[in-house]
């Protein structure tokens, strides 16, 4: 765990999810030290996406964030996908990689999205086995992200906090905590998001996601295409009052707003977390 502790002790501050559509904006952030890139969008060989090499040359830590490994699948992870993630991590000289506690396919059919797994011991076993298969090949630590789920399984045996703690304890993985997911799940389940924050091992948080969403027909959707609500920023403040994570990134995945709006969101996250602004 030596490397994992080193990652957690480096304070990067506020960062952003790099996407090709906002590459120019990201390149112009003077204080940026931490960014994330969707692992599957980076080729294992051949050129890196335009804009990423310049960030790496500046010394920005760029973390590959996998979305299609399906660590929560009952089936073993695809070795080719693990190799790809490991190769991309090495190419980016990343301090860590991240993936989700979710499944994205079953019996050869792609769901097209991150789906929740039951909070059961059987599912914990599946995740632990797949994480072991993955970390055996990774050159750096792995952080696991709990997802926003629009529905739950009927056979949940564990509370969310116990489920996540069990997985982290048994895998030795770090936690990628998405405060927007915490907010979305609590809101849709009628729970208090602070209850989860108070029970999670916050010293295991490698970094944090912050994103926007919107309500449709009574359910809050973690869209990544809407503004970050004040409630999510308040949750950032609550989190940092308990244990400030080394990095927090803004995730935006479409309907990109004008640069001043992205700047304002990054500044708001910095203010909520007590980190310096990276935009000036």
């Amino acid at each position: 765990m030596g490397a994992a502790v080193a990652v957690a002790e480096t304070a990067y501050g506020v960062g952003i999810g790099w996407r090709p559509e906002i590459s120019g904006f990201v390149a112009g952030l003077p204080g940026l030290r931490f960014a994330e890139v969707v692992a599957e969008s980076v080729h294992a060989h051949g050129d890196l996406p335009d804009g990423l090499p310049a960030l790496l040359d500046r010394g920005v830590a760029v973390v590959p964030h996998g979305v299609r490994l399906s660590l929560g699948g009952a089936e073993p992870v695809d070795p080719a996908r693990v190799t790809h993630l490991a190769t991309v991590a090495a190419r980016l000289r990343a301090p860590l990689v991240s993936e989700h506690i979710a499944f994205v396919r079953a019996a050869g059919v792609e769901a097209g999205h991150l789906l929740p797994i039951p909070r059961s011991f059987e599912a914990v076993d599946a995740v632990v086995a797949n994480v072991a298969r993955t970390t055996a090949e990774l050159p750096v630590p792995l952080a696991l992200e709990p997802i926003a789920a629009l529905f739950d399984w009927p056979d949940d045996e564990l509370s969310e906090a116990d489920f996540l703690t069990e997985i982290l304890d048994r895998t030795g993985a770090l936690l990628l905590l998405d405060v927007a997911n915490v907010y979305a799940n609590a809101r849709n389940r009628g729970e208090d998001p602070l209850d989860l924050l108070n029970k999670l091992p916050l010293d295991r948080v490698a970094y944090v996601h912050v994103a926007g969403g919107a309500e449709h027909q009574g359910l809050y959707h973690d869209t990544h295409t809407d503004a970050v609500p004040q409630e999510v920023l308040d949750l950032v403040t609550e989190l940092c009052a308990r244990h400030r994570p080394p990095a927090l990134i803004l995730e935006r995945d479409g309907d990109y707003p004008p640069a001043p709006e992205l700047t304002a969101e990054l500044d708001a996250i910095a203010a909520a977390a007590g980190y310096p602004a990276i935009t000036t």
Partner: peptide
């Protein structure tokens, strides 16, 4: 778990029946 995950994916991607016990609206 494999069977039940496959059923859920079928419901979501092929409009098959929602497996028993799930909140069908959600």
């Amino acid at each position: 778990l494999a069977t039940r995950q496959a059923e859920l994916v079928e419901a979501l991607t092929r409009a098959k029946p929602v497996p028993e016990g799930f909140d069908a609206v959600k």
